[in-house]
Amino acid sequence: MPRYGIAIDSTKCVGCHSCRVACQNQNSLESNETFNWIKHRDRGRYPSYYKEFIPLQCNHCENAPCQRVCPTGATYTSKEGVVLVNPKTCVGCKYCMEACPYKMRIIDHRRGIVEKCRLCIELVRDGGTPACVTTCPTQVRIFGDLDDPKSAVSIFIAKTGAQPLRPDLGTIPKIFYKRS
């Protein structure tokens, strides 16, 4: 069984938010709802100043705090290592939203449940690639099997030494970043 993950080359990101729109389109979200974000950070000082764009989404942590705190067991990890929410058993207590140190979960008030990035698992099971990955004009995201050393994502991580965000938090994320 694969163990899916994404490597993100933030040096390529231009902050166009295509990934956000593609995600909203794929998951039929309202314009004010999203499963991914682009945050920016000031780097350097004039005259060598630049703005770093950092695409964010659920890290699909192996040691997921959201899953640990979920009282109903609605949050679970699929066999592919994707952290998902069962819409039938979620009660909307929002404990998972508090527990997530990355704050990557949102509440869907229409259905009264907590939602999050699903790594487009339906697409992926049919042999596709998540919408945020395919849509990116500068190919910031690389998707693939982290357990396969020959996959593009594994090779990229090995070559660049990409790291998860805040690995010290101990949640073992599956989204890796090349920051510089």
Partner: peptide, 9 residues
């Protein structure tokens, strides 16, 4: 369902 996960407070 709210008693499903004893690791949850």
């Amino acid at each position: 369902y709210m008693v499903n996960n004893l690791r949850s407070m």
